[in-house]
Write a protein that binds this DNA or RNA. Structure first.
Lengths: 229, 229
DNA sequence: CCATCACTTATTGGATCCACTTCCATGATA
DNA sequence: TATCATGGAAGTGGATCCAATAAGTGATGG
């Protein structure tokens, strides 16, 4: 199963694969992760798996208790809000920088990604991998246009701390939220097209904060279900 | 030597100790790190050392080439500028949040730390551990007052990516820079005392950006010395 | 005299082994 | 019957072992 095409250290490969499993929901939130099981699944020994798990712990995606194993982390709702406040600040900065640097080509890409989202919003539920990917790409393009690798890295770190399928699920059920999302993207594209750093910054902040509020609300509902139901 | 007072996983302890060695300059920039030597020094096997090194690599403090070992990372000057632009954004946010949350007690601490810096500035060169600590504490207090663990964590990650003694060295030689530093701290304290988020944000940004420029300049001089001298 | 190639050596990365901790079930005892 | 002790099973963390890779070194040929 994806037999490890030798590209760099094994442990990074393993970490990436485990992260992917968590991101797409294959390894559900709260699920315990057995080193032996993962090692067997990937056809390697426990050593690189252990190191990979530690990497993921460092990134905040899982929790490890000594001698008790690792579990996919369950973020508290207020943590989501805190993280998204930071994300808003960083993505705002990215948009600000992008406004004076983005190319016509990249602007076209943004419109393309948003068109995919718009089309999907009318047709299906919205939680599909395609829409998740389009959403990711939208933000990635802005980051690339911002042309600051450190900034991109920091934003990535935040995103990698929350399972992606959860963010999608939060979008999935709410038609109104999806349309709001698309309109916010449009506002960002407009500001970038106008090469207006202040407006781009504001538009991006609004967008991220609003997403964060929806996600926080989702986690709050989920916490109630899990802990009291 | 500091015989590992059992608090938590061994690998974290090792990572912290190696990081400390790098931060205070005991392990100089560009120096190769031998797993066996570190293991012997700490009285453990190579396994936890390897994991610790990988943690540090993840944090960006060292570089590891496969089968070629790890070296203390040499940041390029432009990287320093990029990182400090991000840091300015984050610390600005921290100051903004702190303005409406900071306690009188914490304000007093800020003044105290800055007094230490002021006193040291007149007396000695400025690169001492005490001044470094006071500088760190100043920013830490603001972060704590901001009351957002995610924000603190992100700022920490940036700071942990550059050996601390280097930042101090950049300060050490320049009397004018030291005084500028202290005045900027005063401006931040004033803004926080006035509970003015906008002013606090601006003052902190100015301060961090200015520090970043000095540090960048230091790295540029150093690069020339190392690579062409 | 210099370039190249085989060989040696140092060092890393992954696998295996062992000890220790934790959890769970079973049974003894008040 | 409830509670606590005890033993076993599962799983992790660290140590050790082995294979694979890359630098260094000396011999050989042009």
């Amino acid at each position: 199963m994806t037999p490890h095409t030798d590209e760099g250290p094994l442990v990074d490969d393993i970490a990436a694969r485990i992260r992917a499993r968590i991101m797409n929901g294959e390894l559900a939130i709260g699920k315990p992760l057995r080193q032996a099981a993962l090692a067997a699944e990937f056809g390697v020994s426990r050593t690189p798996v252990r190191e990979a798990l530690r990497q993921l712990q460092n990134g905040g995606l899982i929790e490890m208790q000594p001698h008790r194993g690792a579990v996919v982390r369950v973020p508290a709702p207020w943590e989501v809000r805190q993280a998204y406040e930071v994300r808003a600040e960083l993505e705002g900065l990215a948009a600000r920088r992008a406004a004076t640097r983005i190319t016509e080509r990249q602007l076209a890409e943004l419109r393309e990604h948003n068109a995919v989202l718009h089309e999907a919003a009318e047709r299906e539920a919205g939680g599909s991998p395609a829409t998740t990917a389009a959403n990711d790409c939208f933000h990635t393009v802005v980051c690339v246009a911002a042309d600051n690798p450190w900034l991109s890295r920091m934003i990535d770190r935040i995103n990698e701390s929350f399972p992606r399928n959860v963010s999608s699920l939060a979008l999935a059920g709410d038609e109104r939220h999806r349309l709001e999302n698309i309109r916010q993207h449009e506002a960002i594209i407009e500001a970038l097209t106008a090469r207006d750093p202040d407006r781009a910054d504001d538009a991006m902040r609004d967008h991220v904060i609003s997403s964060g509020e929806h996600l926080t609300a989702w986690y709050e509902r989920r916490s109630q279900t899990v802990f009291h139901g």
